[in-house]
């Protein structure tokens, strides 16, 4: 009973903190946020959606290092329709997302044949393959030089984009959180742990992995179309292998085990280089240093740091007691 109320109390504090942060983010433009930093934050919002969609895919045990490819499919579809057919971005964006989801479901079918690190390899080459296809159709996609002056969603001011992307991120995160904490997420996690046990309780594990990839594509595509109509330029580099790897790094460094992980990882790894942009050429060193620090010192990732510190400060006595109890327990038989 006591732990129940403690849990509820902690949950209320978390919800309050999230409301404060989101409220602050919504208030920032009124508080004189610089245009430059607003630009950075819009990027952060978009990449948080992608990093969390990657984590969603990871729930079913599928680690991808080619996820930017799905962003690319959505972004290019929407951009090409808007630019060459002159349709409104408000119409082409949902179409881009829809196309991506369909492609996602279709490619997921053969992908279910492979698991674990083999899936990761497949995702890598799928990502490279999409880029190569982009080259073949360079008449439409612009190939290396890319596609420029994509129609905008709003005029040349940043504030509406800021609110649009922030709202998009909040909605996407809410849906993803709900997915994870419903039976859908439970089922995906079950599939990730043991596909044979999962199928023995009636879960069609192949279908669940397809579904998971399709849903993950949905969110990646949302971020992709938002990207296309905000930055209004897409090149070969935009959704390259490096992009996919970066998203993977945001997720892992933030802490793939926690919902807040990709959020923390994306925010820290995108904002710190901006703050240090005077040291431009040394930024990769700082970035790499963050990765190494997290790898060696934070097993739960950046988002796990508060809990880790709390453990360190508050519970050394209890940890010691538990350790000695365990020792006794092990000796007993």
């Amino acid at each position: 009973m006591h732990t129940e109320s403690l849990k509820r109390q902690r949950r209320n504090i978390t919800i309050a903190a999230i409301c404060v942060v989101v409220g602050l983010l919504f208030a920032l433009p009124q508080l004189g946020l610089s245009v430059y930093f607003m630009h950075t934050l819009i990027g952060v919002f978009i990449w948080i959606i992608v990093a969390n969609s990657l984590r969603l895919l990871g729930l079913s045990g599928q680690g991808s290092i080619g996820h930017a490819a799905f962003m690319a499919i959505g972004a290019y579809t929407s951009a090409i329709l808007a630019k060459f057919l002159g349709w409104s971005p408000w119409i082409t964006m949902p179409i881009g997302v829809l196309v991506t989801v369909v492609v996602g479901f279709l490619v997921a079918v053969p992908f279910t044949r492979v698991r674990g690190i083999y899936f990761t390899m497949v995702s890598l080459f799928f990502g490279i393959g999409v880029l190569a296809v982009n080259q073949v159709f360079n008449k439409w996609t612009g190939g290396y030089s890319g596609i420029i002056s994509i129609p905008r969603l709003f005029a040349y001011i940043k504030t509406p984009y800021y609110y649009f992307c922030l709202a998009l991120m909040v909605i996407c995160l809410l849906i993803m959180y709900r997915l994870e904490h419903s039976r859908i997420g439970l089922t995906w996690k079950a599939v990730a742990q043991s596909y044979s046990v999962a199928s023995s309780i009636g879960i069609n594990e192949a279908w669940q992995r397809i579904l998971c990839l399709g849903v993950s594509c949905f969110f990646a595509a949302i971020a992709g179309v938002a990207y296309a109509h905000y930055y209004v330029i897409l090149t070969q580099e935009t959704f390259s292998f490096n992009t996919s790897i970066n998203v993977f790094v945001y997720m892992t460094v933030g802490g793939a085990g926690l919902f807040a992980g990709p959020i923390a990882g994306t925010a820290v790894l995108l904002i710190i280089p901006e703050l240090l942009r005077d040291l431009r050429e040394y930024v990769p060193f700082i970035y790499a240093a963050i990765l190494l620090i997290v790898l060696f010192l934070m097993p739960q990732g950046l988002a796990g740091l508060p809990a880790q510190l709390w453990q360190l400060i508050k519970r050394p006595a209890r940890a010691k007691r538990m350790a000695s109890e365990k020792e006794v327990g092990e000796r007993a038989p």
Binding site: K189, A190, Q193, S194, I201
Partner: peptide
């Protein structure tokens, strides 16, 4: 490998109420 090893005991059974 009889279980979902990362789930708790209760989660194991709840997750198995799938059908």
């Amino acid at each position: 490998t009889p279980l979902f090893t990362d789930f708790t005991t209760l989660e194991n059974v709840v997750a198995s109420y799938y059908l």
